[in-house]
Design a protein around this nucleic acid. Sequence first.
DNA 1: CTTTGCCAATCAGGCTA
DNA 2: TAGCCTGATTGGCAAAG
Length: 159
Amino acid sequence: MSKPSQQRSTTDQNGVSVIQTQAHSSGLQQVPQLVPVSPGGGGKAVPPSKMKKTIADKDSDEYRQRRERNNLAVKKSRMRSKQKAQDTQQRVNELKEENERLEAKIKLLSKELSVLKDLFLEHAHNLADNVQPQGTEAPSPGQNNNNSSNNNNNNHKHP
DNA sequence: CTTTGCCAATCAGGCTA
DNA sequence: TAGCCTGATTGGCAAAG
């Protein structure tokens, strides 16, 4: 939205751009960047000794192109950073929802287990009551009851 | 106060002599 | 392997909304 802030630019038309970077009031940074500019424009590095000559050659096309590329890279980088943050937040929300679903499932299954336990215990008690009627002792181990007509009331029928 | 844009410094990885 | 090159990242600042 906002636009050029720190640069007063005069004529940015055909390569000839006079852009003056406003010195930051704080004066903390703005150390001139070493911009390698080779005479032939080959793009090759310039030895440090010659570099000083071309320091902060802010009027050069080389400089402007470099700035423009960097500005694009900055935009790209910050967009990615933003996207990553959004993705992370979305993932957090998804995991929270999944957690809630799983908690609900645990609750349901616990309830089901409780009901089944109760049924089992009730059944077990009924069995115990039928196998050992009141006032009757269990037969002694060595004494086999060979009476076939005896009706033992156990419900243990295995089909 | 937040957003947007720019600048400069620095980092990281590929390339070359 | 050292030095260079370039895109990516980061911090600071200013202006606009």
